[in-house]
Nucleic acid binder design. Structure first.
Lengths: 173, 173, 173, 173
DNA sequence: TATGAATGAGGGTTCATTCAT
DNA sequence: TATGAATGAACCCTCATTCAT
């Protein structure tokens, strides 16, 4: 859809242009810019949450499951509007919209922390603080859009593979 | 100086207010907003580069030296304008300014990668791709301003300590 | 039809909604907004003009006839779209439409003035300037929509009665 | 200042032009359009309220005092922005501003009603309902801007004189 | 150095209007 | 007749920037 960085910094004019419609028409589909941003945020976060949910019904161990979730999170971030959204300042959202979005994001982050904690308990991971480790792992990923370029030497899939491996490896003893 | 997030998103009016001067006067010190942003970027990056440089003349091993650099990088990011700057879109800078800044940033990143590579060679770190590992380590750190709050439960110093430990630990075998 | 205040300030969208049809369809019935406004004006003014005309074939004296016309004018203004129309700026109409409407309005105002003049001549009214008195009487009435509320303590009929009495009384010696 | 009808219907662009400044500069003096409208309303209503207040410390009888207040109210309405303001829809004001303005307007209207009531009690006026009579008198006046033209045959002063006389006469027995 | 006032470009939003179906 | 989607002009407002003092 947008495939660019910093959605919020884009002009409605510009967004419309990329969608191949007029600025006026954009307002037929979205009440205002915040509404549009909110819906982007929502749609994106749902991708990662789905990956998380599906991992929870997997028979594999926590390391394997975490690897899979991270892989899909990275793929989402590099493939979709997600990257643009991740880098967008949450201040761009109206408080009424920020709240539900943050709730979803927190749910995702808690899921990641739970996986880490489980791994620690089962001895698959070394003894780390799940909170800090979660922040580190997700930060490393969320930062990807800042340096990733679709035209670069590494494909998105390769990055997803390598990063997930590295990050899970970072947790293992 | 500014000690806030998202410099680029602040109004010149607002920046002036926080500095306790008048908007008109701000233009006595900075030619324009890009100039101001550039100087912030520069000042911040210098802190991290100094930490890197000083590590290079240290007798300690690469793990210890990396830990120290990361600690200071985090401290800079959380204590100073750095965070605001890290999150700022580089597009805000004029091309003529972006180039020298990116050059400095690349120098810092290369330094980090060199430390990692050295650690791998000396056997202090496991066999990782220095480029990807560098991106991961720095991404994890650069993302901190997104969730760090000076009023939160963890002090900046504590975070610096814990994060540096975790990230170096992530590289160790 | 519309039964609301300030037609001109209503959106075509909103007008359509209140009529229970779709915006696009509204344009099947009215060429454009000015056309719609014009037809409202016309329909409303006709009510008052009919009251005037019928009064002219009444055997009663001028005071009684004026009272009746005013009563019906007030009722029109409070019951119907009239109020909305009275408060609407005539600038909203295209010149080609404004002219015929103003002609009707003037016909009505001349009728009122004629009634006043007749009353003065017959000694039923005190010696007043018919032009100014006419402006005063009609102004007092046309202003009603500004403060009248259907949910208020006085019914429209009661106001019509009381106002017509007061205004005719204001002309009597 | 503005000397035109329907302030609210004027563009900020247009208002700025008439004041001889730029649109941007207008926002240096008024936070937004509602703020500007509010301040116009306030300034205008103060004129009429002052006339009312001064009448209260006059030794003359209620008829004479009412005549004077009406005369000044009319003069204000025809001379100043007042007319434009009177015709402006109060919906243009933010609720937070509408309230204090309406409070002032009600104070003025209550003052007029009090004068009428006093006149009735002293026998200077005939037995009328002060509320309705007040609405009629003020409506007649407030409607003036709809037909008054500075270039017309009657000067504003002449209208003020004649209208005040007629309206007070309308109350006398 | 410092200020208050002024400017102009551009962004978000509304709305009358059109058109294919 | 009726609809949903699309358009473009115009409006309110923000903000970096300038300038006289």
């Amino acid at each position: 859809m947008l495939r660019e960085r910093g959605v919020a910094s884009l002009t409605m004019q510009e967004i419309a242009r990329r969608l191949g419609i007029t600025k006026g028409n954009l307002y037929y589909y979205f009440r205002d810019k915040q509404d549009l941003l909110y819906k982007c945020h929502l749609a994106c976060m749902k991708l990662s949450l789905r990956a998380l949910k599906e991992s929870q019904s997997s028979p594999k161990g926590p390391a394997e499951r975490l690897r899979e979730v991270l892989r899909r999170h990275i793929r989402a971030i590099t493939d979709e509007v997600y990257g643009a959204v991740m880098l967008t300042d949450l201040e761009s959202l109206a408080p009424a919209q920020r709240r539900p979005y943050i709730a979803m994001r927190d749910r995702f982050e808690r899921g990641i922390r739970a996986l880490i904690r489980e791994g620690v308990e089962r001895g698959e991971f070394r003894e780390v603080d799940a909170r800090l480790a979660g922040f580190a792992v997700l930060g490393a990923i969320n930062w990807i859009p800042k340096w990733y370029s679709p035209n670069g030497p590494l494909s998105a899939a390769a990055i997803a593979e390598a990063f997930a491996d590295f990050l899970v490896g970072a947790l293992e003893p």
